[in-house]
Design a protein around this nucleic acid. Structure first.
Lengths: 213, 213, 213, 213
DNA sequence: CATGAATGAGAGTTCATTCAT
DNA sequence: GATGAATGAACTCTCATTCAT
């Protein structure tokens, strides 16, 4: 009853990628383990060799997506050789391009936030060991996600402090920016008039204009 | 605008309101007919006297939400006595305040779009009469939704044409704007530092700054 | 999709009886909801209208069995008009006859004790509201079961104190007695040489002989 | 009688011992191959190098348990130098002490009898060679088990025939005796007031009293 | 011998939906 | 209108078992 002849064996990462696509297409509740399994030519049961349960798999998807984008955004945010404007422009570009290329995970992150937030908080008050592990990972994910938002906030704040940007309500401005980005992941269709870079360029332009002194 | 018809009997609208809340709290898949029924002190079976099925109820919720906001936005968009800036500022305010007050329907609209889009499109090509009816209503909803977006687009376009705004990529700018709005529905918490009006004021400010010549 | 035309509608008690039989035949783990449902001509899903889950149903079965026997044993144990010997003889008879007639629940109680004891003690340490409710009922069941054993113990102890029985290690003697009883539920077959009354008579005789001064 | 063959490699017997423990703790259905494997630091797959399947392993456990006790009981039963009373007293002691020391297998035998009895009797009538082999071993086990009961029955019968015991219904008395024993395996807890020997002494006392002329 | 990966079968459970009352 | 009872379909997850390595 064993199938895959080893060399085509499916890796954890393959599953994460496939799951991201299914997640984007269907949303958390509607993305079934069977669907995800089919996407990597496995049976649902086989997925449980790689992930303890659906929540864990979903969290892995979101972690992967967040890591992917963080790896690109963080170096820019910390590149003190660049002006705030230039940093913000590049960060916007990376984020939006990331969302349009990797639509799967991007949209997942937009849509599944609510699910994630209530994820696995069983009715009672105490948690089993596995649940604690999971809760810890989920909290870490959220912390990382806050960090992501902070990267943008800090660049904007610095720009304001240095007088490069005009004084804005930094938290609100940041959320406005990120909301616009996230929405791209929702409406973007690969064969539209503009590609990710084009959208990113315009978006960055608008927000930098809004910050202009 | 709350209705209290006979006080002991439950109306279609009561159900829609309750459903919107449950929908916001849980999302489409996780909002069960039982939950919704419980919110109006009925049994699930009773809901079927008012709505043919869950999708129809869902659609009614979204229609209600869209109508609500359209009734407020449309008059502003068509008020030619106002400048483009002023119109846009007021539209932004109404939209964001609407989203923060009526979180229920607002969030529903953000999150459940995907569900709606794939809603009830049975694999084959032949649709039953009921399905055709439903498809028609759903298409009408989407048309209305496009119209909503067009209201914003048109105001911005006019502003550009009249030289009141600088030249921007109108479709992209509009989506950027609406993305920012929708995101408010996601992160807004009633007891935060700012209320809807405060958020709206700042948001309008940023986008108008971005449009400044 | 509704089936049963009301008048033959299945009651909670019908299910309990059927479940008891399946439980006896297969044991807790092997008794599936489907089996039990089939025994009352329902689908597994339908059982969930009557019982929250399998554990709850099982507990109901055991409660019913215990109540049944308690109702018969208790009045005898408390009938101070009778001598200890006579009370014990009658209690043994009721218990054994009960076990042979109502084999279903009897055997269930013997075999499912271990299962029962670990019943629904989820990995962690804290319990949800539903789990607490269940835990409370389960504890009540065990308390009742201890009470049942105490009825026998008290009659024996009194007999010893009054000098009607010789001095024995009352707890051990009681467990010896009850072990013998329970075992009847295991080996008893309806068409054997002796019926329940015959077995009971002999058993009572042996234990009373063992207690004779 | 513990074996430590190579110390790093796992023997059939090691598995049987571990399985007995898991079986006692969890019962047949709930004792998974994975659990048993883990108890000897193997994977479930590896168990299949030692036992054809779970039923076979189970049967091996029960055979081991039965052999263990038979080796101790048989010599006593056949020791014609002893009186019936003395033989019975010693047999009771060995059995009960065995059950309390070796709780694992003891409890397994009480609880898993039912499982064993219906063990692997596929619906149809034709059995594969493997199934026939298994059925043969299972029948042999039951025969051996009957033999075990017969040892007790014969000692009691002889005592009656020789006038050493009063006339009792030998089969019923025997089952009463064995039921009491088996129950010890259920309630016995290592750190109680009495150890196995203490329980055995009292139990033997009661049954011998019951047999007294 | 041992194991990682895979699977079919089946368990418990949930849910939208129907229908007789 | 309202509802209790019932159901089919689907879902998550577990488990004994197999096979290539």
């Amino acid at each position: 009853m064993a199938r895959k002849p080893a060399d085509q064996s499916v890796s954890r990462d393959d599953i994460i990628v496939a799951a991201a696509e299914v997640l984007q297409r269907n949303g958390y509740e509607a993305a079934t383990m069977k669907d995800i399994a089919a996407a990597v030519k496995l049976t649902a049961a086989s997925l449980y060799h790689h992930f303890r349960n659906k929540d864990t798999l979903m969290l892995a998807v979101l972690e992967a997506g967040l890591s992917h984008i963080m790896e690109r955004i963080e170096p820019i945010a910390q590149n003190t050789a660049l002006s705030s404007s230039e940093r913000l422009r590049r960060m916007v570009a990376e984020h939006i391009i990331g969302l349009t290329q990797n639509t799967a995970v991007g949209a997942a992150m937009v849509f599944e936030i609510r699910t994630l937030m209530t994820f696995s908080l069983p009715a009672g008050d105490a948690l089993s060991v596995q649940e604690q592990e999971f809760a810890a990972r989920r909290d870490a994910f959220f912390a990382r996600r806050d960090e992501f938002e902070r990267l943008f906030r800090d660049v904007i704040r610095q720009g304001v402090e240095l007088g490069e940007f005009r004084a804005v309500d930094v938290p609100i401005f940041t959320k406005t920016l990120l909301g616009a980005h996230n929405w791209v992941g929702v409406w973007y269709k690969p064969n539209g008039r503009l590609d990710g870079a084009g959208i990113a360029e315009r978006t960055a332009d608008y927000f930098l204009a809004a910050l202009r002194n």
